[in-house]
Computed example of a mutant assay.
Amino acid sequence: MLDVINLADIALVVSVFAIGAASPGPATLMIVKTAAEQGRMPALILSVGIVCGSVFWGILAGLGFVALLQASAFWFTCLKMAGGAYLLFLAYRAVRSAMTPGAVLKPGDERSAAPWHASFLKGLFVHLTNPKAPLVWLATLSIGADHGSSPDTMALAIFACALAAMAIFTGYAFLFSTRSAMRFYQRAHRPINLLAGALFGAIGVKLLSSKAGLATSAG
């Protein structure tokens, strides 16, 4: 019931989640790169896909399935392997983009932008294969569940976090798809893509080589 919902707990959960979502990570890096490289609309659609993937893990965390995933070394390792492999693929794409002449769009030119469904699925997949995402949801929601919160509280917390994620990720899409940001990216796309490739590759290798453990970033 609504009258048993602790709004202070909801605010705390959303605050912790927002800090994690806004911190640099594969999702935020992908949004920034897409916004500056392809424009606003592909970045916004990518953001929606990322948020949908995040909400999927949030619902599973609320239902307790993520705890089972964390307890299963085999399935958690499979998730880490898939995430690491996908990040290495993104690293390859970023380096290839850096080495390809004329791969960057000019401001206002979206003729080479990816189809909307491709952008959405890319965002969805990067979050579904991010092993940090389910564990961060589990840790975040546990903050509001310490005092035996009701199902209404859990549902509202997930909904509020989803709104926060949408605001944060679409905010990045708007910010980095401005004409000035796109012009800067056009001039510096090679070192930026090489840096993005290095970061994607480093995170991917870390996932493939590390042991299962609780993560601390949702992005």
Rank of each mutant, 00 (worst) to 15 (best):
Pro24Ile: 12
Asp152Lys: 00
Gly123Arg: 01
Gly64Tyr: 13
Val55Phe: 14
Lys206Met: 10
Ala218Tyr: 15
Thr129Glu: 00
Phe184Trp: 15
Ser72Arg: 14
Thr34Glu: 09
Thr170Asn: 04
Ala91Cys: 08
Ala157Asp: 02
Thr100Leu: 07
Leu214Gly: 00
Val4Asp: 11
Cys78Asn: 08
Gln70Val: 11
Val13Ser: 03
Asp152Thr: 12
Ile168Trp: 01
Arg183Phe: 07
Ala43Trp: 13
Gly53Phe: 11
Tyr86Asp: 00
Ala145Ile: 09
Lys206Asp: 05
Ala160Phe: 14
Arg179Phe: 09
Leu46Val: 10
Cys52Leu: 15
Phe184Cys: 00
Phe76Gln: 04
Phe176Met: 03
Leu79Cys: 08
Cys161Glu: 05
Ala61Asn: 08
Lys211Val: 08
Gly102Trp: 13
Ala202Ile: 15
Leu105Met: 13
Ala118Trp: 11
Ala94Met: 12
Thr28Leu: 05
Arg93Cys: 00
Phe174Trp: 14
Leu214Gln: 10
Leu79Thr: 05
Leu199Ile: 15
Ala22Ile: 08
Asn6Val: 08
Leu63His: 02
Leu195Gly: 07
Ser23Val: 07
Phe174Glu: 09
Gly20Glu: 09
Asn130Val: 10
Val95Cys: 07
Cys161Pro: 04
Ser142Ile: 05
Leu214Arg: 09
Ala198Asp: 02
Leu156Gln: 05
Leu90Ile: 06
Ala196Ile: 15
Pro131Ala: 06
Met41Asn: 09
Leu163Asn: 06
Pro191Gly: 08
Arg183Asn: 11
Ala215Ile: 10
Leu88Ser: 07
Met41His: 07
Ala167Ile: 14
Gly201Lys: 06
Ser112Gln: 12
Gln186Arg: 11
Ala11Gln: 11
Met81Phe: 15
Ile203Gln: 04
Leu44Tyr: 10
Ser23Arg: 01
Phe76Trp: 14
Val14Gly: 00
Glu110Ala: 09
Gln38Ser: 14
Ala212Ser: 13
Arg40Leu: 14
Gly49Ser: 07
Ile168His: 03
Leu79Tyr: 05
Val48Asp: 01
Ile50Pro: 01
Ala67Cys: 03
Pro115Ser: 08
Ser177Thr: 05
Lys33Phe: 06
Ser149Leu: 04
Lys106Gly: 04
Val104Ser: 05
Thr140Trp: 10
Ala8Asp: 13
Leu90Thr: 02
Ala61Ser: 15
Ser23Cys: 11
Val205Gln: 03
Leu135His: 02
Ala91Tyr: 05
Gly108Leu: 11
Leu60Ser: 06
Ala94Tyr: 03
Ile59Gln: 04
Arg96Ser: 10
Ala133Asp: 12
Ser54Pro: 00
Val95Ile: 14
Ile192Val: 15
Val51Met: 12
Leu7Asn: 01
Cys78Ile: 14
